Simulated assay, not measured.
Amino acid sequence: MEFEVKSNQLIEELRQHGIRERVLGAMKSVHRHLFVPEREQENAYGDYPLMIGFNQTISAPHMVAIMCDLLDIRDGMKVLEIGAGSGYHAAVMAVLAGSGHVYTVERIEPLALLARQNLKKAGIENVTVIVGDGSLGLPEYAPYDRISVAAASPEILDTLTDQLKIGGKLIIPVGKNYQELYLVTKTDGLKKEVKGDVVFVPLVGKKGF
């Protein structure tokens, strides 16, 4: 009951940010306390990042909401996430994708295992967690309708834009210590829009830092 009260309070706070109801509904249906370490349970519905081990974080709920809102994930879409973490962001996107599927890449194997366990606990079945170098994307399942990057990249990566469908969207933080959040839409070229200032852990990999 305590988690439900805190979850409702969080959703109401996010509503004040103008987040669409579809996204709020997805976030309401995914219990964030299932995706944080036991020591952080009481903070699960606070609107701030939390450490999940291996110097990695679970993003603040408002950031998950904003990124999902900007991506406009629809039923049946194929989504790629870079940086699975504990699996929470993938779970929210999976609800939005409905009959679609989310592929999420995590470079730290124990975190990938944790994400799989958490997603199972949460009853999320349309997510595949893969251990690998997310800076290279996941070409074997490309092209994707949407790509979400939960780590700071040195640039908008062509390895990712090349794996987008025409009409597809990519959300990616670009910069080192502080980043700008870019929404990239692929048409006959790439439309790039800055959507705000953010702070993420670095993207580590061949095309990352």
Rank of each mutant, 00 (worst) to 15 (best):
10 L>S: 03
11 I>E: 04
16 Q>L: 12
17 H>C: 15
22 R>C: 09
25 G>K: 03
26 A>G: 01
29 S>T: 04
32 R>N: 00
33 H>N: 13
38 E>M: 09
55 N>A: 12
56 Q>D: 09
61 P>M: 01
63 M>R: 05
64 V>F: 00
65 A>D: 01
72 D>P: 15
72 D>R: 13
73 I>C: 12
73 I>T: 11
79 V>E: 03
79 V>F: 12
83 G>A: 06
84 A>Q: 01
85 G>W: 00
88 Y>C: 03
90 A>E: 03
92 V>F: 04
99 S>V: 06
99 S>M: 10
101 H>M: 05
102 V>P: 02
103 Y>E: 01
109 E>Q: 15
110 P>F: 05
111 L>H: 08
111 L>I: 08
113 L>H: 10
118 N>D: 05
118 N>E: 08
125 E>M: 11
125 E>V: 08
127 V>M: 04
127 V>D: 01
131 V>N: 10
136 L>F: 06
137 G>F: 11
137 G>R: 10
140 E>I: 13
141 Y>G: 04
141 Y>W: 02
143 P>H: 08
148 S>T: 10
160 L>N: 03
164 L>A: 06
167 G>P: 14
169 K>R: 10
173 P>Q: 03
175 G>N: 14
176 K>C: 09
176 K>G: 03
179 Q>W: 09
181 L>A: 01
182 Y>M: 03
184 V>H: 00
185 T>I: 12
186 K>L: 01
188 D>F: 07
188 D>K: 15
203 L>F: 04
205 G>Y: 04
